[in-house]
Amino acid sequence: MKRNLLIAGALLLPIIIAGCVLTTGTKVFSIELSGWTNIPSQMQWRYIDVADESSDYDDNKDKIKSVDEVVLVGDIINTSAGDAHSTIYISDNLYSTASQVETAGNSTVVFESPTITAGDSLHINWSDALAHIQNLPELKNQLLGDGQFYVYSIQSNGSSVRYNLSMLITITAGS
């Protein structure tokens, strides 16, 4: 009997050593990226405070162990007469022109669309969303930090697009 207890204890030891990680869970929540501010000539921006926009994030922000995935889903609609291409950046700072945003070191590219032909739209489902994401570690770091940042979208010259995008965020949190 004593030997059996010792063996059972040995089997459970790795789980205990692993850090009592039994009380964590993985959550998925979303932020609708509506209400963009339009700036003439190809740029739009939006401020995000994730805690303000998601009660799930607000409830768990002090207990986040890891940000597992961040993607953009939804539609990008090309409303112009020619082909369009969209790039989305994040930054801690507010800029008023596309060239400021695009200046190296001012922001980080997090999304790049393929070319969207005139009048067409790009639909991004969750299953293929990660293929469009760039610099995922920086995006995750924004959520592990204060969760407050600016999002900029810059379209190719002469084009205009409309966004119906949401951000899906997967976190693992717990005590």
């Binding site: 979303s30 889903v73 939804g74 969750w126 899906l168």
Partner: peptide
């Protein structure tokens, strides 16, 4: 199984 998340009335399916 594939997860689903509904945002703004649209359901997105992951892998």
């Amino acid at each position: 199984g594939d997860p689903k998340q509904t945002v703004g009335g649209i359901t997105y399916t992951g892998k």
